[in-house]
Design a protein around this nucleic acid. Structure first.
Lengths: 264, 264
DNA sequence: CAGTGGTCTAGACCACACT
DNA sequence: GTGTGGTCTAGACCACTGC
């Protein structure tokens, strides 16, 4: 449970106790190692999304380091959005449910001047079935060609206007038993459902955007013609360990919505 | 130069010296106040882009706080990309020149499988003139309608293909004397030029993306037809103090490039 | 009130970059 | 070697939460 050369808790010198870091080759600071250990516990499900993790003091005792070192490790986890700190209460495992921002990965916002977003989106699942992955699908997900994947196609409707047509591919192995029923009727973000039902939490994602025109079928589903420019958003979502766990391709209507991004 | 109730450097108690923070109402931690003071010096141009700022120890003495407090302030400035820390050398004011990533705000990348990016983009300035701002232009820039703005239109060409058509609007007041010559022939990012020549550094930006089709003129300039879907990127760039300083509207061809975004 | 995260300090040592 | 940022520790106090 301790870290490399165990630093002694009851060190008698006033100086730093037995260095807990290897010498020059591949040096990694103590707090990074602690961060790694906490990350492991997070992955292993020792503390589940929404739950309280042990206090800084407890973790410091457990790993036999000072509270300040644990603090710096947790600071980075909080910066990565893996945990939330709440003064006076404790540190909680981050979750896609009950988060201040619902739909954390959806960057599409209604233009100002439009009517209200009418709250939640309406979801229609058009298809939900298992199939063998083509190379195009399996490669980004890190699967072998021909492995089982779950394909979901759905439409998100805002204020009565069909706005997003999404195709979602999930590794079949990890999401056994996922039904169209669950996709349809789970109250809240899909990512929250995957987290609750399958214990798999999407931690970060990479998106590639393009402007495209729809084919006949896509156009019909979105109630536009085949000349209407649409925003194609290809998203690869990762769980812990940078393991890709979802491939998603969305077609967004941008006539009364826009995709927002902040740069710094 | 000190902060609120001056903490004494030579405090005799082993406890925290005279608290440097006001009581409950509008409490702000000391390191935030230090961050604010450093930010002021940055804005005032006391240290220019690319220059070395004083060492943590020097700043600690100047503001009469401990090195750790200065460190935390600088940590946040570094997280905001306002300064760069280099171990063994010091802390430097961030700049758009000579940065590890050129074109920090440009998210368009060549698709894999394409030929090399052929290094730098080729720039053609089509127009560069002063005019009175319409409401549409002046509002986002925080100007009054009719105030002078500089309008630049240009094309960026990658590997021989005209790929980006950009319209740029800058407050006329702040950028007196900017010429097409400078826009054309400055070696390096435009933001680096604005920084060097006018001392105005863009610190962050907000973008709104849409899929659109070009009008006849735009289509001709980009060598596409008027049915080709293009990515419209509207960017508002800010300098220190969240002051908007540039409005830019780009039309991106996404047939062999894509816009990349990371979510977390 | 006790317990938690948040702030601040002070001092020692490590890793890196110049000279 | 000297000076810089980077890491680690230890202890005290502050601010927030809930019993």
């Amino acid at each position: 449970m301790s870290v490399q050369a165990t630093p002694l808790a009851e060190a008698t010198t006033t100086t730093r106790p037995e260095a807990a870091v290897l010498q020059t080759p591949a040096f990694s600071p103590l707090y990074q190692q602690i961060k790694g250990l906490i990350l492991q516990s997070l992955q292993a499900g020792e503390w589940k999304p929404g739950e309280l993790i042990p206090s800084e003091m407890e973790l410091a005792l457990r790993y036999k380091v000072s509270q300040g070192t644990v603090r710096k490790a947790i600071d980075e986890l909080a910066a990565d959005n893996l945990v939330n700190r709440r003064q006076g209460k404790g540190t909680f495992v981050a979750t896609h449910s009950e988060q201040q921002v619902q739909y954390r990965f959806l960057q599409l916002h209604p233009d100002v001047g439009q009517q209200q977003d009418e709250g939640r989106a309406q979801r229609h699942v058009l298809a939900c079935r298992r199939l063998r992955a083509t190379a195009q699908i399996s490669r980004p997900l890190g699967l072998r060609s021909g492995e089982s994947v779950l394909h979901v196609r759905r439409i998100l409707t805002f204020a009565g206007t069909p706005t997003i047509l999404e195709d979602i591919w999930l590794p079949g192995q990890a999401f056994k038993g996922l039904t169209a029923e669950q996709m349809m009727h789970y109250p809240g973000p899909t990512y929250a459902m995957l987290e609750m039902e399958f214990g798999i939490r999407m931690v970060r994602a990479e998106e590639k955007l393009r402007a495209v025109t729809p084919d006949a079928q896509q156009a019909e589903l979105l109630h536009v013609d085949t000349c209407t420019p649409l925003l194609s958003v290809e998203r690869l979502s990762y769980t812990y360990n940078d393991q890709p766990m979802e491939l998603r391709r969305g077609l967004y209507r941008t006539d009364s919505h826009h995709y927002r991004n902040s740069l710094s």
